[in-house]
């Protein structure tokens, strides 16, 4: 925090009105062309060198710790590998089996797609609303924030499985609450038609991480912008749409992308609630849960690796598309 004065001093040179305008009015290249050519070259090289110096740890980690295991798993996806003996090359067999001879695989795809389609939008909306609520000035704010965040702090702690049954079991809290209104319902975790609903609820229960990212973004929006908009006669909803949302788009983008990736890879909730089985009757057989069953319980790591790379391909395609859409709706502070 000792550097704060320096930052403050610099921020004062920023024209406040420019912060609010989000139109792309000054491409950087235009500004750069004003400089002499040789200096551009020099500063460009200097910048590249500086960049790679900053990137040294990450590049090392990438090559030594991340890429090796990733590529090895790609290789394994073309083999039959039971962990205990050496892998045996089988070509595309794992990939073809997946789509032609494995109903449980297709089931896991269906379960995961339903889960992603429902949980991601809900999670984003709920966490944005709560972030807005907790960004206001009111008493006990710190306490409220901590309390709303509490479930997310628990992680996948072993206690959650027990707690979850308590809430959604046949004799659980939810049913006791429903009974007050005269509604009778069986177990929510034990019924194949409802089990996925309870896992989506579990996801929403731990909305805290997404909310914190939104909240941190909201804190960063200069108050002056809201005040300026208020002066111009904008109401709360208008201010939200024309000031808050545009400034939040980088984080909305981030949370949507990461939320989707995480939802596709979702494992812990189903693992904890179903005891690793994906039950009842495969109704919570998430993609990675099935992958884990194949890889570790059934000792079919080649097949599991193939599943992982199919997922990677799907997510990569989705991310590429999503990044492409970003140019139309995401506004960065460095684009001005």
């Amino acid at each position: 925090m000792s550097d704060a004065p320096a930052a403050k001093e610099l921020t004062e040179t920023v024209r406040p009105e420019s912060l609010g305008t989000i139109t792309d009015d000054g491409p950087r290249s235009a500004r750069q062309t004003r400089r002499p050519k040789s200096r551009i070259m020099k500063s460009k090289t200097r910048e590249a060198i500086a960049a790679y110096v900053f990137l040294i740890p990450w590049i090392l980690g990438m090559i030594l710790l991340t890429l090796g295991p990733m590529l090895y798993s790609l290789y394994l996806s073309f083999t039959q590998y039971d962990l205990l003996s050496d892998p045996r090359w089988v070509g595309l067999q794992n990939y073809t089996r997946m789509f032609t001879a494995d109903p449980r695989y297709l089931k896991s795809v269906a379960v995961t797609l339903v889960y992603v389609a429902i949980s991601v939008p809900l999670l984003l909306i709920v966490s944005m609303l709560l972030a807005l609520l907790l960004n206001r000035n009111m008493k006990f704010l710190t306490g409220y924030r901590a309390l709303f965040y509490l479930p997310s702090l628990m992680g996948a702690s072993v206690a959650i499985a027990a707690l979850w049954r308590l809430v959604f079991g046949a004799q659980g809290l939810v049913n006791q609450a429903l009974a007050i209104f005269g509604i009778e319902h069986g177990s929510w975790v034990g019924n194949p038609d409802d089990a996925l609903t309870t896992i989506i609820t579990l996801t929403l229960w731990v909305f805290g991480s997404t909310m914190i990212i939104f909240l941190a973004g909201l804190r960063q929006i200069p108050k002056e912008l809201h005040e300026a908009a208020t002066m111009d006669g904008a109401g709360a909803i208008r201010r939200f749409i024309s000031v808050t949302i545009p400034l939040m788009t980088p984080l909305i983008f981030f949370n949507t992308l990461m939320g989707t990736i995480h939802a596709f890879q979702s494992f812990t909730g189903a693992y904890v609630v179903s005891g690793g089985t994906g039950g009842p009757a495969d109704s919570t057989l998430f993609y990675t849960l099935y992958l884990y069953q194949r890889g570790f319980a059934q000792l079919d790591m080649g097949y599991a690796s193939a599943m992982a790379w199919v997922l990677l391909a799907v997510l990569a395609a989705f991310s590429a598309f999503f990044f492409w859409t970003a140019r139309f709706w995401v506004h960065y502070g460095d684009e001005r």
Partner: peptide, 24 residues
């Protein structure tokens, strides 16, 4: 450390590609 890690990464790939040689 770099050498070690590099070597093991290489070993990983090597042992992978030499699968079924009866080493095990």
């Amino acid at each position: 450390a770099t050498f070690l890690a590099g070597a093991t990464a290489a070993a990983l790939l090597l042992s992978a590609c030499g699968g079924g040689t009866g080493a095990n």
